[in-house]
Nucleic acid binder design. Sequence first.
DNA 1: TGTGTTTCTTGTCATAAGGCAAGAGGATTG
DNA 2: CAATCCTCTTGCCTTATGACAAGAAACACA
Lengths: 191, 191
Amino acid sequence: MTALQKVYQHPLLKPQDLEIIFEAHHKFNFQKGDFLLKKGQVANAYYCVSNGLIRSFVYDYDGHDITTGFIGINEIAIDVASLFRRIPTIEYFQAVTDGECYSIDLETFQGLYHSMKGLNEWGREWMSESLFQLKQRSISMISDSASERYKSLQRQHPHILQQAPLKFIASYLGITDTSLSRIRKELVKDT
Amino acid sequence: MTALQKVYQHPLLKPQDLEIIFEAHHKFNFQKGDFLLKKGQVANAYYCVSNGLIRSFVYDYDGHDITTGFIGINEIAIDVASLFRRIPTIEYFQAVTDGECYSIDLETFQGLYHSMKGLNEWGREWMSESLFQLKQRSISMISDSASERYKSLQRQHPHILQQAPLKFIASYLGITDTSLSRIRKELVKDT
DNA sequence: TGTGTTTCTTGTCATAAGGCAAGAGGATTG
DNA sequence: CAATCCTCTTGCCTTATGACAAGAAACACA
């Protein structure tokens, strides 16, 4: 099953709908370090990742690069607020590894979104799901220890650990790479 | 301007649309301590608050009550994931003060949502905005100090400080009420 | 009015995580 | 191949926050 098939899996999206949707996407390759979006820009498209790993990040008040999210295979790299509300983004989206993705620009998407009932439903469900994931993460940031958060990541997204350097993972978990290194040491000890 | 007028303000929602929407809501009063939704339930409605303050909260791994959000006047108390994906919620929604709100049940909303283009747009924008707010908060939880987060809250949502006890505010900021008390002491000193 | 109950502050002590610096391997590149 | 980055680990010390407990003040209410 291709990445686009995975991404757009939905009961109301029939094969003929999917065909139209897939054709609206434009495939391209990205290289480690490439930026899909930079702070201050207004997003004009979103990206379905079929290979590789993307991260979103911000700079905090004293210039530290803080990873805010990872987008892996069969996931969508998108800044919802910037794309749909036409405002400058506050994050950067950058490739962690080489990879491949399918992009669709806003105008094209809007056309399909308004004419295709299934896509409309898919969109709402995708947003619900995103809100849910983000909420889960917020709660976890508050109620779990750094070590717990690391173990969850290890359990739920092992591919991230394999593809991203520890400094990205550390800032994603809300700690420094130094602390993460110590946490990993502790966990190995317990084995 | 009434709470519902504020909540449903949108260029594509015309007076005649709004009239229909308003009529679909059911007004009722709540009392401090009342629950709008409890963990494990599947949400059947959402609530536009016209008076008072609601909070959402969870219990963390060792039983601490952690406030995850505040919903004040002209805001919507909703668990998007539970309502639209029909899954049990993981949060509680409880009244912090006495108040008043307008509820609309899922079925009624769905009918309007699918028949009224403006409401559809409004819904998508509302979700974008929510995602944005939540993302901002996540970033802030990582990149700002507890003291900074308190000052932001004070600046941006002073009404919350006036209506909610410190223990709720503290857990919302990710710290204990003890720590918040000390932070407040420091801030007063700097004045 | 009196008696709980909640809210907020404060003290003491413990601990997780950060700041900084050094060093060891690996990878990259000219 | 040498030079130079990254990446990851580790040691030492500091600091923010938490756990727990006690007390003051405000509030609820019978």
